[in-house]
């Protein structure tokens, strides 16, 4: 079963083309890292999958269906928003708010919805955290709540947009582990967008690399090579392996020098 399919897709952000004639397929139940330089269009790609952006050409299919807004099969953890910084609202109330706030009218949650909330908090181990004000949680703890929120309604696909930003390395590791565990338990397809490859190594099934309006999908060893990366960065790149870790570095003489 193909979870996500891009066929000759062209994506635009304003007047910028971020993807030209991109095609790939992600199988169901895979944990894919979405990587690429800043401004390459990773968030734009997510918005296209979420149905918030129409591709200017080509087609995108999610579990065989065309993309649409409000797709209940997709859970989304957006980039860090500062509105949640000072919030005295508890995580639990935040979750209730997103459930009742997804429609107009009756503002109270049903028993079924509250059970779902309990479920996701248990799955992510965030039950106690969810009782505290969001503003008092650390970055990693907040991410745990947001991941739980994305699991409401039992989606089959999970998109995480730069969840590791402003977390220190050991926190980063625990977030990736948590996602990996959930992904395997619930057999979800996950696209995990990140700046760096290192925290994802050994946990992801493959890499979707976006750069220079091109995209490459494959196992780490096939995509994270100097040849593929130089092409996708539009500049000479090198790959350094050390103690089981992989670093992508700018390599070769700099063009401006």
């Amino acid at each position: 079963m193909i979870a996500l399919e891009f066929d000759g897709v062209c994506l635009r952000y304003g007047s910028n083309v971020t993807l030209a004639d991109g095609s790939f397929r992600v199988g169901q139940g895979k944990f894919i890292g979405l990587l690429g330089p800043n401004g390459a269009g990773k968030t734009t790609l997510f918005r296209a999958v979420l149905g918030l952006l129409r591709p200017s050409s080509g087609s995108i299919r999610v579990f065989g269906q065309p993309t649409r807004r409000g797709n209940a099969h997709i859970g989304y953890v957006p980039q860090f928003g500062k509105q949640l910084n000072q919030l005295s609202l508890s995580g639990r109330d935040l979750l209730i708010g997103s459930v009742t706030g997804s429609r107009y009218g009756w503002p109270f949650s049903t028993a079924a919805q509250r059970e779902d909330i309990d479920r996701v908090l248990e799955v992510t181990g965030a039950g106690d955290l969810a009782r505290r004000p969001m503003g008092t949680l650390s970055g990693g703890e907040r991410q745990r709540i947001l991941i739980a929120q994305a699991l409401l309604g039992s989606p089959k696909m999970l998109l995480l947009d730069e969840p590791l930003v402003s977390l220190d390395p050991n926190r980063q590791e625990s977030v990736v582990s948590l996602v990996r565990d959930i992904q395997q338990d619930l057999d979800m397809t996950v696209l995990f967008c990140s700046h760096e490859l290192t925290p994802l190594l050994g946990k992801i099934d493959g890499v979707l690399f976006l750069g220079q309006r091109k995209v490459a999908l494959g196992p780490v060893e096939e995509v994270i090579t100097p040849k593929v990366l130089s092409d996708l960065y539009g500049a000479p790149m090198d790959v350094v392996r050390s103690a089981g870790r992989v670093f992508v570095v700018a390599g070769g003489p700099s063009p401006a020098a």
């Binding site: 807004r69 997709i74 989304y76 957006p78 980039q79 509105q83 949640l84 935040l94 708010g97 997103s98």
Partner: peptide
């Protein structure tokens, strides 16, 4: 509180 998520 969560405009991107609401939009999604």
């Amino acid at each position: 509180l969560q405009p991107e998520l609401a939009e999604a």
